[in-house]
Design a binder for these strands. Structure first.
Lengths: 381, 381
DNA sequence: TGCACTTACGCAACAGCGTTGCCAAAGTGG
DNA sequence: CCACTTTGGCAACGCTGTTGCGTAAGTGCA
């Protein structure tokens, strides 16, 4: 392959802020579309005709596209389907190991790095203690060290880039951190460019909750759908996937879920407001009243579900993972109760649960896996 | 023009659910893009080179596209810019009267119809009492009659279609009503197809709040941005525009803002929950306590702003219009207070208002104007 | 075993998109 | 009047997906 367009099937020929489409853009679009379908098809693969049907392209166009993908080593023929009375369809499969992507999760006390293949599956993982408040020098050194170790450890195919997930407000577009809670020295630090220099790789920066949500959006059952990922750890945040796309908001500020007020004139929160979910929920956890914590979280989740009409709610974060079923069940009970009250579309008539609540895949590695997806998302559609 | 693609620059060559792009799709995309820029430019117009710069297309491509638009009567040359030392740029302008679109607002007690030009400006308006609960027969007859009267009254250019805005849950994709509050006989009625038959026009159906939001999104200051339109009338609803696009949700269910719970264990609402904004807000209005009503609305608006990171909040609906400044000011005070607490990006350092609150343009015609935009939106991007 | 039929898929010619190279038109400024 | 700048159309071009058609590779029946 040429190398110049490696890892950028999305934007072919379209500059940011220049939405005009040309032939390069068409090619990039369709290629990413086919790659996305191949990834979604997984082990089962997909035939040219199936791809044609699902994209609306002609079989001949799909043949040309998949021929390019095979030339680049990204896809290969793998067996045939059963005949339906004529020549059997040739199955095409994505070659997961053809490229790798790095995912870095910078948490307050820990760094987690993964090397993921094209399907997003981690092929190598490293984890180490970290003091995020120590400032840029030590953190950059730690990240660079871990990533280098990961790459020598796993060797192999070209690495497309590194996705980096951080807590707190930041600017995804500029790749700059904003006031990380408890570590004010990071405010304004251009982490993306600094890390890109250190690693010699393209870097994408995003909030931890956004990265997690993007990673979860890869699951086949979420394809093209809408869901909210609620992350309850030392704080409470959300990542929103609407219509298959991550909603970041104009300032990467979307998903500030912790300070949703659910009790007018309630107890004061550290943020200055009164009655924030985060404060209420964490206070209940602190006094050991998990049902109350889950109920408060459920009410806020119900507000979100109503407002955005999402298909599903996913829960994650350390606090949830410590008591998974208590939180999942408690949140689901609130949603089910509300759904029974209103005429929300339900599978069967009556009061069946309208919006399912589930635990996010990946457990403690949800964010790091999602960080790798920040890079991989550029290849697929 | 050929007629077959009239009013459909958006989907040229792309079937729904078939996201593959071909040359027809490219042409449609770029044409709609240029038309959108011409509409945004308004009276001032835009030169070919300006269009080229903003689309990322070459000047020659813009020339070809605008030549087609001139052939179809949608655009025309209109004067020249001042010379900068060479041949002066030729200004192109959208011809607003080249096509019309109908907007119909079916409210519980009233029908409002507008005939809008390509800029969305109403060229004719009709308003009549209506009993939505009377059922399909009388309502369809009334709508057909009003629209016919509007068209004979205004005469003129081809009509692209009719946008219809209704209260209550409905399915935008299928064009089917769901349980309209207080008028259960509408549940499941295929209003879009029934009206399309009656009118002999393509019909687009959507919720009243969505239509209003779409119409408001046309304003130059909202171009490509995010905002929430909060509609407080006999009920409370919202229309969400995120990144320039209306967010309907998978089931056209997004924007259910009235039953956001902001007071755990608060007073019971008609919906069965406790502490819904709608109940609290309308109760305050009923007892004449407008500051309390505005404050409750402000808290819920702040929750929405935090969660979605919108640029602006717009207020509308009869109750708001009865006391516009009380509501605008009261909501703004809550948002300003919260913004001062948190380190939200602000124009100047300090506690300047982060998210502006304004009254929606159009007053009592906001929804009907927006309904016309349901049709016009298909032409522009 | 042979033949008719069905289905998959590649080659070659084609239409149409935006792009490029070039030139005429239409201004400014000395 | 002339040199220069800038706009914008014409024509040739490259590349996209599309179309027409031929070939490959199966099934099913006689």
């Amino acid at each position: 392959m040429s190398g110049s367009d490696e890892g950028d099937y999305r934007g072919g020929g379209v500059r940011a802020g220049a939405p005009g489409a040309n032939l390069l853009a068409v090619r990039g679009h369709n290629t990413a579309l086919v790659l996305g379908l191949l990834r979604a098809a997984g082990e089962a693969g997909a035939s040219r005709l199936e791809l044609a049907e699902r994209t609306g392209l002609t079989p001949q166009a799909v043949s040309k596209i998949t021929a390019r993908l095979r030339d680049e080593g990204l896809a290969a023929e793998a067996g045939r389907r059963a005949s339906t009375g004529g020549k059997p369809r040739t199955v095409l499969r994505l070659i997961p190991g053809a490229r790798h992507a790095v995912g870095v999760h910078l948490d307050r006390d820990e760094i987690t790095c993964v090397l993921a293949d094209l399907t997003g599956r981690p092929v190598a993982v490293r984890r180490a203690p970290l003091d995020l408040a120590a400032g840029a020098g030590p953190v950059l050194a730690a990240a660079a060290g871990e990533v280098a170790a990961l790459r020598t450890e796993a060797g192999g195919p070209p690495v497309l880039g590194a996705g980096v997930a951080c807590p707190g407000p930041l600017d995804h577009t500029a790749g700059v951190l904003r006031q990380v809670t408890g570590a004010p020295q990071w405010d304004g630090f251009p982490l993306r460019d600094a890390l890109a220099d250190r690693l010699g790789l393209p870097v994408v920066l995003d909030k931890d909750t956004n990265a997690a949500a993007l990673g979860l959006a890869r699951a086949p059952e979420e394809a093209g759908g809408s869901f909210a990922y609620l992350h309850l750890g030392t704080g409470l945040g959300a990542g929103l996937v609407l219509g298959g796309a991550l909603h970041r908001g104009p300032r990467t500020g979307a998903g500030e879920f912790g300070h949703q007020v659910v009790q007018l004139d309630g107890p004061r929160c550290a943020c200055g407001r009164r009655g924030c979910v985060e404060a209420l929920c964490l206070a209940a956890v602190a006094r050991g009243d998990l049902p109350a914590a889950a109920r408060v979280l459920g009410v806020a989740a119900a507000n979100l579900v109503e407002l955005l009409d999402v298909d599903r709610v996913l829960l994650g974060g350390r606090t949830v993972l410590a008591h998974p079923e208590e939180f999942r069940g408690g949140v689901a009970r609130v949603l089910d109760g509300y759904a029974a009250l209103r005429g929300r579309p339900v599978p069967a008539a009556g009061g069946a649960p309208a919006v399912p609540v589930a635990l996010a895949r990946g457990g403690p590695r949800t964010v790091a896996d999602g960080a790798a997806e920040l890079v991989l998302a550029g290849l697929f559609r």
